[in-house]
Every structure is written in C-alpha cells, then in structure tokens.
Amino acid sequence: MKLQFLGTGAGVPSKERNVSAIALDLTQERGTAWLFDCGEATQHQILHTKIRPRKIDKIFITHLHGDHIYGLPGFLSSRSFQDGITPVTIYGPKGIAEYISVSLEVSRTYLRYPLHFHEVEEGLLFEDNQFYVYCKKLEHAIDSYGYRIIEKDSPGELLAEKLKLNGIQPGPIYQQIKENETTILADGNTIKRADFIGPNKKGRVVSIIGDTRYVAELASFIKDSDALVHEATFAQDEDEMAYNYYHSTTKQAAELARAGDVNQLLLTHISSRYQGESIDQLEAEATVIFPNTKIAADLLEWEINQK
C-alpha cells in the first residue's frame, strides 16, 4: 500500500505543483488503485507513475471546487481509450453525478464502462472483505469531506516450526491449514488452524482530509492513522487568512496530527505563494510541533508498511 501524490498545490497550478489529486496504490492488496480528488491535468501526472488508469476503480472526491474535479471528465474519457472496461464508482458530495453526466453528455463522450455514483454522508461509506472507508464532514466554504481508510486485520503467519515439531512436514497441507479452521490429516487426526498461526497482522489506516479550517474535533476521526494527509495552504502566521478562506496552516495541521496520535503527517494543498526555500520553512514550522511531518511534492511515493 502506498500513496502517490499527483498534485499538491492549492487553487491554481504552479511550475512546481499541480492541483489536487492523490492515488492510493493497492496493487499488492487487490490489484487496483483508488483516486482521491482529480484536479486538472491529473491524467498527465499519472503518465509519470506506474499507475494504470484502467486499474483505478474507485474515485473519492472531497468537494466540488474546480481544483479538485476539473480533471475528472478527461481522466474518465482517457480511461476508455486505455483499455478500461471495468466499472468505476465515484464517491462525492451532492452534485458530482450531475457535473460528470453533463460534461460527458455535452462533449459527446462515450465510456466503455459503467459509472456508478454515491453521494457521501458522514459515517461508514464502503465495506468489503478487505477495507472500511469512513467519511467525515469538514469545515469549508462548500461541503467538503475527509476519508478514513481502514484495512481489515489479516491472518498471521503460519507457524511452520511448530507444525514440524508436531510431525507435519512442509507441503500442500500447509496451505490447507492456513485456509481452513480445521484440517483432517492423512492419518485421520484433526488440527485447528488457531493452534498453528501467529497473531493477526494489524491493518493499516490512512486518513485523507480535504480542504478545511482547523477543526480540533477531527482528532478522533484521524486517531492512530499510519498516515494522515492534511492540507496546509498557509504558513503558521497566516491563521487569520486561513480562517477567512476556510483553510488550515502548517501549525494547525501539526497540532491535529499530534492530538490524533498519528504516525506520519503528510502536508499538501500548498499555496503557490510558497516556493523554493520557503517550503523548507513551512516544513520546519510543522516539525516543531509534530516531528514526523513531511511536505509532499508532486509525484512523491509514500509507502505505508504493515506493522
């Protein structure tokens, strides 16, 4: 599991940063990728990565400001031309289905695959045998949401040495033991999987917070995240401007990460006023409060390893 930052700028693109888009690469876990926001030129950014558009099957939109959605019609269209035939589900605030439908209809774009829309609300948004995705409303000029992705715990390692000590030698029987609660051996004996498997591997947690003012209550939503992606549009001394424009500062994001006891804070949505050496200053502001902070750059890959 890894995060691929496709756009880390705010409002308008700059020479150093494209507008908002993040991919969660789940190739190893399920052979797919999920996209969070899709600002203009996201499909161009994907060309510089190993991500295949046809493998993206879920798109989560935080809010409907243009720098987060203007790349969607183009991406969806190009996916058709790149052998994308499997369904795509788009999650987002009310209006996302109308925006996409009108864009495709007016441009007379035909997709080779079905689109499904899901208007988001707070609470559990999605669950399957591997993941939960939760949604939380934020505080922005328009409806904006954060997403918490929780990987379910997976079975522990098979205790091969213990099996050998019990006279069970390596072979296909090991796979049978791992996959079944009970297994009948060739000699007629029955063994229980629970006796020969280690502790469950704890699932990873990623929280991706869309555009928002500082909201202290979000600490419970992002609690214990392995990685927290949070906007930091402004420097710490611009808290009044951040409030007026419904955004957050580096300091506020770091304070939230500390309160939520997360493992890593990744800052994005950086205003174009900050470039070059000023980026190092922004990072320094945050690390004073929360040491495990990094300002994401376009095309940064961030591995989220299992504990």
Score class of each variant (00 low, 15 high):
Q4C: 13
Q4M: 11
Q4K: 12
G7S: 09
T8V: 13
A10G: 04
G11I: 04
P13H: 10
P13C: 09
P13W: 07
A21T: 04
I22R: 03
D25N: 15
L26R: 13
F36K: 01
D37F: 01
C38D: 07
G39T: 03
E40T: 06
E40L: 12
A41F: 04
K55D: 15
I56P: 05
D57C: 12
I61H: 04
H65V: 08
H68L: 11
H68A: 12
I69D: 03
Y70S: 11
G71I: 06
L72K: 13
G74T: 12
F75V: 11
F81M: 14
G84V: 04
V88W: 04
I90P: 01
K94F: 12
G95K: 10
I96V: 14
S101N: 10
S103H: 04
V106F: 02
R108L: 12
R108V: 06
T109C: 00
Y113C: 02
V120R: 08
V120G: 11
E121V: 11
E121Y: 09
E122Y: 02
E122Q: 13
F126L: 09
F126Y: 15
D128S: 06
F131M: 09
C135K: 09
C135E: 09
K137N: 05
E139T: 05
E139K: 15
E139D: 15
S144P: 06
Y147L: 12
Y147D: 04
R148F: 08
R148I: 00
S154T: 15
E157R: 01
E157P: 00
E157C: 01
L159H: 07
A160Y: 14
Q175V: 09
N180R: 10
E181H: 07
E181V: 11
T182L: 07
D187G: 07
T190W: 00
K192H: 10
R193L: 05
K201G: 01
G203K: 06
I208M: 06
V215L: 15
V215N: 08
E217R: 06
D224L: 07
L228M: 08
A232M: 15
F234N: 08
Q236C: 04
D237Q: 14
D237R: 09
M241D: 05
A242K: 02
Y245C: 10
Y245S: 11
Y245H: 04
Y246C: 14
H247G: 10
S248Y: 01
S248W: 00
K251F: 05
A253Y: 01
L256S: 03
A259M: 12
D261C: 11
D261I: 00
N263M: 12
T268M: 14
S272H: 06
S272E: 11
R273W: 04
Y274V: 11
Y274K: 03
E285P: 06
T287E: 10
T293S: 10
K294V: 00
A297R: 15
L300S: 10
W302N: 04
N305K: 13
N305F: 02
Q306W: 14
